[in-house]
Design a protein around this nucleic acid. Structure first.
Lengths: 148, 148
DNA sequence: CTAATCTTGACTGTGTGAGTCAGGATTATG
DNA sequence: CATAATCCTGACTCACACAGTCAAGATTAG
């Protein structure tokens, strides 16, 4: 039940960009050094963030990366989805609208599916609710552990 | 962000036991056939459930497995923890009380940690809240998607 | 005694995650 | 224009964990 390092690194990197949003474009080298992420590996990761529109790149000398949107408009769910694909604790849950119940062959016998659906929905809700702005300001959303 | 097949199979198996709770001990062979789990693999998995006290075994001919507690007293969190270890979306979060901040070397710079903590806490809360009884009765807890 | 069952540990193979390497494309700057 | 700084791309390696198998032993009902 683990995130891969891509999601972890990716969030670190984009959070760093959010903190430096007022500066010009930040070279990958700088992010990598600051967050202690292997530079070449970070390149791969940031490609996916760019493709998802979460960061934008400026090529050439003095280039680098900037946030694609203001920090309030980027949430952790987007980052994780861009880097790890859809959140789905078990295979069955990958959006296969075509094959309605193809996975758990036993159709209705698979009583456990709802458990993973519920888990997934909760995870998505949590991640979608946290923005980069929340992270860099240390929003109470993150610090106090409110149980509804 | 995936569960391994152990957790998936394990929950299926123990849910099956919960449904057959009134029967005598159920042989692994029967569970494996019913839930379409490789028998030898299920053996491995169920060992961990037994060690955690979630199921009990009856050895010898006419033996098999039974629930270790009534279905209301076994929750999904226990099952997952028994089979996959502690739930922790990123390494940093494994209970290392000894090395307080050893992982994210940058100590307070690691602003993203709280995100994963929050995620973990939420996941644990969800899983701990769902019992086998909820699963076999199709509790509304699982079916309606209440957003607080 | 024997067959049914759990119990244990070693074993294998495949895939993915994590990271590296090498080279090409783009652009600011002097 | 030349050069250096940067992004961009794809192929590559390596180790490890996951998923599953195999084989043999211990227990017990009948």
């Amino acid at each position: 039940m683990k995130l891969s390092s891509r999601g972890h690194y990716g969030l670190m990197a984009i959070t760093y960009l959010a903190q430096k949003a007022s500066d010009g474009p930040i070279p990958i080298k700088v992010i990598a050094a600051a967050e202690e992420i292997p530079e070449q590996y970070l390149e791969q990761i940031i490609v996916d963030l760019r493709r998802a529109g979460l960061v934008t790149s400026v090529r050439g000398a003095r280039g680098g990366y900037k946030l694609g949107h203001p920090p309030e408009q980027i949430n952790v769910g987007q980052v994780v989805k861009a880097l790890e694909g859809e959140i789905a604790p078990v295979e069955c849950l990958h959006s296969q609208e075509d094959t309605p119940e193809a996975c758990c062959s036993k159709t209705d016998n698979c009583k456990t599916k709802v458990v993973w659906e519920k888990l997934r929905d909760t995870m998505v809700a949590v991640l979608d609710d946290i923005t980069l702005h929340d992270i860099i300001t240390g929003s109470s959303k993150l610090t106090l552990h409110a149980e509804s």
